[in-house]
Amino acid sequence: MNQVRVAVLSGFGINCETETMAVFEMAGASADRVHINRLVNGEMTLDDYHIMAVPGGFSFGDHLGSGRLMGNRLRFGLRDQVKRFVQSGKLVIGICNGFQVLVKMGLLPGDDEVSLTQTASLALNDSGHYENRWATLEFDPNSPCIWTKGIKRMRAPIRHGEGKFVTNDRKLLDRWSESGQLVVRYVNPSSEYPNTSDEILPYPISPNQSWRNIAGVCDPSGLVFGLMPHPEANHSTWLGATWTRDIAEGEHGEGEGMAIFRNAVEYAKENLQ
């Protein structure tokens, strides 16, 4: 396939669309800013794209719960388009507020039928407030997730007030764990890889006290992926939290976060029409 096309959603308080477009372009795709109402009014259609990205932001100010109102716009306003997109084997990512949207609309952790039934949520951080700090993430090597293939660890900032991944049925956690859906977790940066733990790590290693230190999940197919941290904010080495200590002159280049977007663009190139 010649060109991988990415629809980066925008509007209503989404605010990371510029950098999300930039990272897909750096990974070799072409990215369009797509206002959600352009999909609703038929001016544009998701059918023209291979990847849909729901960027971070503060859609509707996080009122009535982060991601809920935007999730409803997608769940009720674009239900058929979104289902068709996912069922046709295309790729979806939700970052931060975008992840909250995908969880609230039931696309993540999701099910084989794409029934859009909510089974998990992102509660207020235990600290009770918004925070911006860098976290170290570890990825499940056995996950079916397309987006995270081959990635062991990554550093990325978290920037959220509601990122504590929870569910009302703890048995689901075991099921998701077995199916490799608990794909990204907060980890102690000074530990040796691999080192994920189900015990909640102390603050601020786990910035929000998420259950099982979950930072992001994928759906059973591995095509739909979402996470609270912002890999797109680590697109270049000079954006790291401690780059002035870690990166020697002449070593500058692509940042750790780019691997996620490259995985998706490569997959789309090879597998999608």
Partner: peptide
């Protein structure tokens, strides 16, 4: 300061915090 988003737009080179423990 931590509760301000200081990194949105993915452009932040020298941040409000630095050092080994940020």
């Amino acid at each position: 300061i931590r509760s301000y988003d200081h990194e949105v737009i993915a452009q932040s080179v020298i941040k409000p915090f630095c050092g080994v423990n940020h």
